[in-house]
């Protein structure tokens, strides 16, 4: 993965065109959700060894936010989708 990323809009592009935000956390809570839901969303991470989903931004390309499904041990990418198709970072 981590040398080339297949952007769903632009095709295979080098890693340095992207900026990375980090793990897709639990969904952004409703505004009246309890504080611990917010704590979980903002701070807690699964950080798995293995299959992982994270936000990448094609900053030097289409400027779309993408969600990569990527293995953190092998670096293999199994899927790249436009983040908007997943609505608000919901976990699968």
């Amino acid at each position: 993965m981590s040398s080339l990323v297949k952007c769903p809009h632009c095709g295979l592009r080098p890693r340095e065109e992207f900026t990375i935000r980090g793990e897709v956390p639990s969904p952004r809570p409703a505004s009246d959700a309890p504080a611990n839901a917010w704590f979980d969303h903002v701070y807690l991470r699964d950080n798995p060894r293995g299959e992982h989903r994270e936000y990448w931004h094609h900053a030097g390309g289409c400027r779309r936010w993408l969600v990569l499904s990527r293995n953190t041990i092998t670096h293999d990418i199994s899927a790249v989708v436009d983040a908007s198709t997943l609505k608000a970072g919901t976990k699968s």
């Binding site: 993965m1 981590s2 040398s3 994270e54 041990i73 092998t74």
Partner: peptide, 12 residues
Amino acid sequence: GYNSYAQRGNLA
């Protein structure tokens, strides 16, 4: 910049 347990990086 990306989560990794692979103890290696890339050329960029």
